[in-house]
C-alpha cells in the first residue's frame, strides 16, 4: 500500500494559483474564440457602413424625398428618374401573392403534421418539405417561367405575358411554404399534451381542440413564422429576376411584369454598370431600404415571440 502511487500525503504546499501552468494559453484561446464571435458583429457593421456610405453619396445627387416618394424608376434610361415607389410596389405585390399561397398551405400542413399525421406519414412528408426548402431559389425561378406560367396561368389568363408578378409571386409562395410549415409545426408541437387532453376530456372534437385550444396557444410562434415568411419573400431575388420581368411600374394588375428592389439590383449587375455612377449608387440606396425592411420584420417577429410566448413547464 505504501508504494502505491496514490498514497495520500495530505500536503497543502501546492501552488494553487495555476497562473503559470495555464494562464496564458487559456487566455489566448479565449481571445481567439471571442474574435470569432465578433466577426458577426463586424459583418453587421460592415453592411450598415457600406450601404449607408454609398447611399449617402446617392442622396447628395438625388434628394431623399424624391427617392422615397417618386413614382417613376428609370435608373438605367437616358433620362433617369429615381422614385423608388414602383420597386416597393412590385416587392409588396409579389410578397402579398406569395403570402396568400404560403400562409394557408403552410399553416394547414403544419396543423396536419402536428395534430393529425401518423408517425409514418410524418416521416415521409416532413423530409419532403425539408427537401423543398433546400432547393435553390433559381430552380423556383426556372419553374415559374417554364411551368407555372405556361401550364397553369396561361390557360386561366390567356393574356398573361412572359413575365408577371403573379407567376413570380406563386413561385416565391411555394418556396416559403416549408418555412411556414416547419416553424408553425414547431410552435404547435410545443403546446403541452395536457392542454389537448383537457380539451378532449370536455367532449371537444379533434378539430375543435386543434383550432380552439392548440392553435391559440401556439399563436406567437405561428405569427412569428408568418412575419419571417414575409421577410424572406421581400428579400427573394432570383425568382423575381427570372419571372417578374424588369419593368419597374406602379401597377394594380399582377398579370403585368413588375420589378422588385432585389430584381433591380440583379438587373444592374447582369449588365455593365460604372462604379461610382448614379445608377451604381442607387443600388446601395435600394439595398439599404431592403435591409431596413427585412431587419424591421425580423426584429418584429422576435418581439412577437418574446412578448407573447406562453411558457409551459
Amino acid at each position: 500500500m505504501a508504494s502505491n502511487p496514490l498514497a495520500s500525503d495530505g500536503s497543502s504546499d501546492l501552488d494553487l494559483s495555476g497562473q503559470v501552468a495555464h494562464g496564458i494559453g487559456e487566455r489566448v484561446i479565449g481571445a481567439l474564440l471571442f474574435a470569432c464571435g465578433m466577426v458577426s458583429i463586424l459583418t453587421t457593421v460592415g453592411i450598415i457602413v457600406i450601404l449607408a456610405e454609398q447611399a449617402f453619396e446617392f442622396f447628395r445627387q438625388v434628394p431623399l424625398p424624391s427617392f422615397l416618394f417618386g413614382t417613376s424608376w428609370t435608373a438605367l434610361f437616358k433620362t433617369p428618374a429615381y422614385g423608388v415607389l414602383p420597386l416597393v410596389a412590385g416587392t409588396l405585390w409579389i410578397t402579398l401573392i406569395a403570402l396568400l399561397v404560403a400562409l394557408p398551405l403552410g399553416l394547414l400542413s403544419a396543423m396536419y403534421l402536428s395534430e393529425y399525421a401518423s408517425p409514418r406519414a410524418r416521416n415521409i412528408i416532413k423530409p419532403s418539405l425539408e427537401l423543398l426548402a433546400g432547393v435553390p431559389t433559381i430552380v423556383y425561378g426556372f419553374f415559374a417561367v417554364t411551368f407555372i406560367r405556361p401550364e397553369i396561368l396561361k390557360p386561366l389568363f390567356p393574356k398573361i405575358g412572359p413575365f408577371s408578378a403573379l407567376a413570380a409571386g406563386i413561385a416565391v409562395g411555394i418556396m416559403i411554404i416549408p418555412l411556414v410549415a416547419s416553424l408553425s409545426e414547431d410552435a404547435l408541437r410545443s403546446v403541452p399534451r395536457s392542454l389537448r387532453e383537457g380539451g378532449l376530456a370536455m367532449g371537444a372534437t379533434r378539430s375543435e381542440v386543434s383550432w380552439q385550444v392548440v392553435a391559440p396557444s401556439a399563436l406567437s410562434g405561428i405569427v412569428a413564422s408568418f412575419i419571417l415568411a414575409a421577410s424572406r419573400a421581400i428579400g427573394e431575388t432570383m425568382i423575381v429576376a427570372l419571372a417578374a420581368g424588369s419593368k419597374a411600374q406602379l401597377s394594380g394588375n399582377p398579370l403585368e411584369p413588375m420589378q422588385t428592389m432585389t430584381g433591380f439590383i440583379v438587373q444592374v449587375f447582369s449588365g455593365d454598370v460604372v462604379a461610382g455612377s448614379t445608377p451604381y449608387l442607387s443600388l446601395f440606396a435600394v439595398g439599404l431600404l431592403l435591409f431596413l425592411m427585412t431587419l424591421g420584420l425580423n426584429i418584429f417577429s422576435q418581439w412577437v415571440v418574446s412578448r407573447f410566448r406562453e411558457v409551459y413547464e
Partner: peptide
C-alpha cells in the same frame, strides 16, 4: 447583443451580402 445580431444576420437577404462583398 451577439446572439440577437446573429439571429438577425440569418434573416438578411442574400443580395445584401452581395453588396457587402462588393464594397468590402
Amino acid at each position: 447583443l451577439l446572439e440577437v445580431n446573429i439571429a438577425n444576420l440569418a434573416g438578411v437577404p442574400s443580395v445584401v451580402y452581395g453588396l457587402l462583398g462588393l464594397g468590402v
